[in-house]
């Protein structure tokens, strides 16, 4: 079991109103699964992902990641977990502007306890996503798909237990989306645990399991045969 969340709630207070983004979610994910999280807009997908990625903390409930209770950790411990155990891929890539691909990929190792040979590790990660010939390119010299590959390489860098992606193909066309999904599928086939938030059924097709959210609760949870 790599992820186990129980009775997870997350509430936001806006003015006098309280918004329940997550209303008691129980979810377990095994090592080596590739999970799609689906649901209509506002159903709480991103909120759940942010908590799984240790970027946000639940209002109540517990979260156990790779055998450790994350819910009780302080700010610094969470930063360590994000650095070592989690690779996050964002819809809008989040690359540092005016910074070469290689330096962008290296970034997590700046904050790592054991960075090793940063350059060599970053080069390997870029080779892994098929961008060996684009190391010195800046983000504005890369296509959308290439930018997302750089972001995936960055997420892979510290060899995390968990790869999280919130609508990673949301800004890409169908063909490029397929390429990115093939990359995620390959990473999954190598034994990594992947969780992807998506609206699109074609993206979910690549996964081994589909979890649907509705109004902050799990509506359905089924295993499926992945496209390969």
């Amino acid at each position: 079991m790599i992820i186990r969340v129980t009775n997870l709630r997350r509430e936001f207070t806006v003015g006098i109103e309280t918004i329940r983004a997550l209303a008691g979610v129980d979810l377990s994910i095994e090592r080596g699964e590739m999970v799609a999280i689906m649901g209509s807009s506002g159903s709480g997908k991103s909120t759940l992902m942010n908590i799984l990625g240790c970027l946000d903390r639940p209002t109540s409930g517990t979260y156990e990641l790779d055998g450790k209770f994350v819910s009780g950790m302080d700010e610094n411990e969470l930063a360590g977990v994000r650095n070592e155990k989690i690779g996050f891929v964002f819809q809008s890539f989040e690359l540092l502007p005016r910074t070469p691909a290689l330096a962008n990929v290296e970034l997590p190792l700046l904050y790592a306890k054991q960075p090793g040979d940063r350059r060599a590790r970053a080069v390997r990660a870029l080779e892994r996503v098929g961008l060996a010939d684009r190391m010195d390119h800046r983000p504005n010299q890369l296509s959308g798909g290439q930018k997302q590959r750089v972001a995936v390489a960055r997420a892979l860098l510290t060899d995390p237990a968990l790869l999280l992606a919130d609508e990673p193909t949301g800004n890409l066309d169908t063909k490029t989306s397929d390429e990115i999904m093939r990359l995620f599928a390959d990473l999954h086939d190598e034994g990594r645990t992947v969780v992807i938030v998506t609206h699109e059924p074609e993206i979910a097709e690549w996964c081994t399991r589909v979890v649907r959210l509705r109004d902050g609760l799990i509506e359905s949870d089924e295993s499926v045969e992945p496209r390969r």
Partner: peptide, 16 residues
Amino acid sequence: TREIGLRKAVGATPSA
């Protein structure tokens, strides 16, 4: 701000 968010997301502590 976004850069700071990203740095935190990849493991930068507040003191870093």
